[in-house]
Design a protein around this nucleic acid. Structure first.
Lengths: 117, 117
DNA sequence: TGCTCTTTAAACCTTCTGGTTGACAAGCCC
DNA sequence: GGGCTTGTCAACCAGAAGGTTTAAAGAGCA
C-alpha cells in the first residue's frame, strides 16, 4: 500500500474497530486499557490499531504519567473533508450544469442562503 | 475485514489509484478504457478497482451502449461527511468546554513534574 | 530494591489486496 | 457469419493486515 498520508487516514478509518476507537475518543481521552476494555482481542492487538491511528495522525499520546492518555486529533478531519468536498463539489457543479431540475434546486438553496444573510 | 458499508467506502478511498479515479470522474463520466489510460496496469486490474468503488457505492455504471460509462455517485460522500462531522464536532465541542479545565490540569501536572526533578 | 503494570517488539498464522496472465462471453460493425 | 473491441471471470502470486502468543524493556509504587 502506498504510504501517502491521505491513504493512511482512509485506511485507518476503514477498520470498524478503529472507527469505534475514534468515536469513543471523541468523547474524551482514554488510557489504552480503557480503550481496549470493550473489545475481545488481546491488548497487543489494540496497540497495533493505536499505532495505525497514530501514524495516520488521527491520534496522539502526549507524554505524561505512565498510563498515557490517548488523544484524538481533529486536524486530520479537515484534510479528509477538504478532499471529499473538492470532488463532491466539482461533480455536483458539473451535474447541475447538465440537469435543469438540480439547477433549480440549487438556485432555491442559494436563494435561501441569500435570505439568511 | 468487516463488510459494513462505511468500511467499504473508506477502504475504497484508501487506495491512491482509486482516489485518482474518483477525482477524474468528478469532472465527468468516462469509459473504462478512458479511465484506465493513464495507469500502467492491466485493464483487468482497473476493473478490479472499479468493482471496489462500485461495491462501496461510489460509482455506478448505468446500462447503455457498449462502451458503458462509469458515473460518480455523490451520495456516499454525504455519509462519510456525516460520520466525520459527528465526531469532529463532538471532540471540538468537548475541547472548547473543557479547554480551561484541562489547561489548568496540565499546568498542575507540569508543576508537579517540575517539583519531582 | 523488587513487584506490578504499561508498552513495545518479534515470530507466526490466516485472510485480504493489488496485481498478473489467460481464457472467454457479449456487442457492434463490415 | 467473422472479426474487432469491450467487458468478465478464474487461477495464481507476493505482500500487507489483523490477529495470536511469547518475551522483554520501562515506569511507578510499596
Amino acid at each position: 500500500m502506498s504510504a501517502d498520508s491521505l491513504s493512511r487516514v482512509f485506511a485507518a478509518l476503514a477498520d470498524p474497530t478503529r472507527r469505534d476507537m475514534v468515536a469513543r475518543l471523541a468523547d474524551g481521552d482514554a488510557t489504552v486499557n480503557q480503550l481496549a476494555e470493550p473489545y475481545r482481542m488481546s491488548l497487543q492487538a489494540v496497540y497495533k490499531h493505536l499505532r495505525v491511528l497514530e501514524e495516520a495522525g488521527l491520534v496522539t499520546r502526549p507524554p505524561g504519567p505512565q498510563p498515557r492518555a490517548v488523544h484524538l486529533e481533529t486536524e486530520v478531519f479537515d484534510r479528509m473533508n477538504e478532499w471529499i468536498e473538492r470532488y463532491r463539489g466539482r461533480a455536483e457543479r458539473r451535474f447541475s450544469r447538465l440537469d435543469a431540475v438540480l439547477e433549480t434546486m440549487r438556485a432555491d438553496e442559494e436563494r435561501e442562503e441569500e435570505g439568511r444573510r
